[in-house]
Nucleic acid binder design. Structure first.
Lengths: 187, 187
DNA sequence: CATAACATACCAGTTGGACGGTTTCGTCAA
DNA sequence: TTGACGAAACCGTCCAACTGGTATGTTATG
């Protein structure tokens, strides 16, 4: 009835925007703030439109998590392409990808927080386990050393500390730490 | 009217039970499942009773988080008492406390998951930062080395991996890792 | 008997989601 | 080139269940 229908249709754009808004809400106000009304309202899309793209709230969350995993995969793959040494390559890719996602200027700091929030949902945790398992099987030939496991563990620790703002350390110490971690992947 | 009022009054027990139920709900079904109705229902206490102990939902969550921090503090302090060497004592205490909380048989595996869920709420994240800051100031004399920071970071990584079930490694590798971490705190 | 420890009843707002409508778009026959 | 047509991309409304919270009880306990 109103002019609302008359705007151009851009399904992919709208879909992405819905995911972005959901991510922003999750990182800024926590899981309890991610409601269908809030998401649809903040993105200028009706709830009907939202439920057209994502048939249920769970589907929305899963899609959001999936997009984050895809972004992580892409970042890892990019880092791995620039790495000539096969041994420990995936672990270095994982490390660099996590660090890069933090250092991106435009609010991709949200990325970590959204991941955190989503990981707190038990249903999505299984998806994460599957991802890790799949990766560790995929790179069992080059990245199954104890040291590599330690580096990946430490990467998670850095990721967690970054997002919580705890364990603040100066850049010098950070540089030395990262250098040491990379060294460990090469042993 | 019913016999509900006739049962014995045991405020501390009821209060603790409410916290336990909230923790269980959070770890099993995520933050969105922690509602006043769900908590009061699952603990056999009326919603009025719940709101008598915790005047608001936020107060309940804060109290829950506070109790977790208290438990962590206690575990650290206990570990530190058994440690004769001052240098790096807090960091070792932190490491041992996190490991001990994991190895406790009765569902204290929940502990990590609840912490995770609570940490995903932005309001409580600040409380965590304060805790870390307070601790790092308190032990600036004995635990401010770069290596100590690294160990605490790695501890967080282990904690995260344990709770997510990712990065699974055998006991041998784990033992070696922990040994190395302890060694680092002593340098 | 005063107060803390509960319970019961109720409320206004919000929740996820079902539903039926309207508009645009790709496509394919004429 | 057109234009009909089905599907996809939206919109707006309604609803039952649930949400956090209030107000007012009732009972046990010091």
């Amino acid at each position: 009835m109103s002019t609302a229908h008359h705007r151009k249709k851009q399904p992919l754009f709208v879909r992405q925007q819905l995911l972005d808004v959901a991510a922003r809400l999750a990182s800024e106000k926590g899981m309890t703030a991610v409601t269908l009304d809030a998401v649809s309202g903040a993105s200028g899309v009706s709830k009907g439109g939202l439920l057209h793209h994502f048939p249920s709230k769970n589907m929305l969350l899963e899609a959001l998590f999936e997009s984050l995993l895809a972004r992580l995969d892409a970042a890892i793959e990019e880092a791995m392409r620039a790495d000539p040494m096969p041994h420990g390559r995936f672990t270095r890719g994982y490390l660099h990808a996590c660090l890069a996602l933090r250092d991106q200027p435009q609010g991709t700091k949200d990325w970590a927080q959204v991941t955190m929030v989503l990981l707190s949902e038990p249903q999505l945790r299984q998806r994460w386990r599957d991802w890790v398992r799949g990766r560790s099987e995929e790179y069992v030939g080059t990245d199954s050393s104890v040291d590599a496991a330690i580096v990946r563990l430490a990467t998670d620790g850095i990721w967690l500390a970054d997002l919580l703002g705890s364990h603040d350390m100066d850049e010098g110490a950070r540089e030395r730490l990262i250098g040491r971690l990379i060294e460990l992947t090469q042993l």
